[in-house]
Design a protein around this nucleic acid. Structure first.
Lengths: 190, 190
DNA sequence: CCAATTTGTTACTGATTGGTCCGAAATTCG
DNA sequence: CGAATTTCGGACCAATCAGTAACAAATTGG
């Protein structure tokens, strides 16, 4: 009884995520979002509410797609060191291969919006906690099978910082060798 | 022969730095800067050029003040581990005590402007390199007196990532215990 | 085929953006 | 004191911001 929409909302959201990911919240105008999605404002507002809700939806999309993909990267056989080496190496490879310097959307959001918007802060913290738990799971389920919970948490906390820091180093334009060194040291500490 | 200015340019720049530091480049309007400095646009533009130059000047001010202060934090007696433990601990203490969640301006700039503006990228990278060299110097001049240059570089690269990551964790609202764990692990890897 | 309903599109809103112009106030040197 | 010079302050600029209202096109159910 109604005209069906001519676009896939999820595909549009993926584009919105890309836009915010690249330029940040304030750096992305509604015009940018229109261009990225090929949709007009009215459709966007009807679908997502306002700009802030689009940002939060983009963050959720990042969680459900990119973070999920990253989690799968850790689902490999091998020792904990090997698994994390592959994980860290992937982001370096990717940045060098595609020249993608957008960094980690989660980290970007923490830096440029978590301060301004409490809901963003909550979401960022929640998703980061998820990642930390994932790291702990990997440490506990692969050689040398950490059993001390406190030690595991500490290692995971260190890996979190190392991961976020690495992605900032990538954004700051450090050369490949330096990134590899940093990643190697992080993994060796596991 | 001319009317003297009624404010100290450096003090004004310090305020501008604070504004950008807190809200980022796009998040800070000229109105915000007027309010922060107590100066009018005309004076600001005459003194610094345009908004982008104000940002770059603020970055330099950060380098010459905050980074310098941080460097002095490392100028303590003790082993390398002790010196870095004090260094990392300071930022955690400070964030908890003052509630200051602005993070590291250098890291913020890398995340939100290095991508957009090449000069910012250059400056950020240059200053970060300075910090990395400082870390290497500390590793080489305190127990256990690292002599292998490659190992020293690797440790410094790891400390850089750990430092930047820690400051992102702080922005993301992680609790004190977690921050301390992360810092402790980073220091232990030295 | 027609009425109901939801889509997409155009035009517009008031507010704010970074930046400029120009006159008035103030200070120093002659 | 007076001329030169510079700072300061408000008005002003076009462009852009996020968001809205109103209208036309399209599709489905009756």
């Amino acid at each position: 009884m109604a005209r069906p929409r001519t676009f896939a909302p999820d595909a549009a959201l993926a584009r919105i995520k890309d836009a915010f990911w690249e330029k940040g919240y304030e750096g992305t105008s509604m015009q940018d979002i229109e261009a990225a999605t090929g949709l007009k404002k009215q459709s966007l507002y009807r679908l997502f509410g306002d700009k802030r809700q689009m940002y939060l939806a983009a963050l959720r999309h990042y969680e459900e797609n990119e973070i999920r993909k990253a989690a799968e990267l850790l689902e490999t056989p091998g020792t904990a060191k090997e698994r994390f080496a592959g994980f860290f190496g992937h982001f370096i490879d990717d940045a060098l291969k595609t020249g993608d310097r957008r960094g980690c959307f989660l980290c970007n959001a923490a830096v440029d919006q978590a301060q301004v918007d409490k809901e963003t802060l909550r979401q960022v913290h929640r998703i980061m906690e998820q990642v930390a738990r994932l790291f702990e799971r990997v440490l506990a389920t692969s050689k040398p099978y950490d059993t001390d919970a406190e030690l595991t948490t500490k290692k995971a906390a260190h890996l979190m910082a190392s991961y976020l820091g690495l992605r900032v180093l990538i954004k700051a334009g450090w050369p490949e060798d330096y990134l590899r060194l940093s990643a190697r040291a992080a993994v060796e500490a596991v």
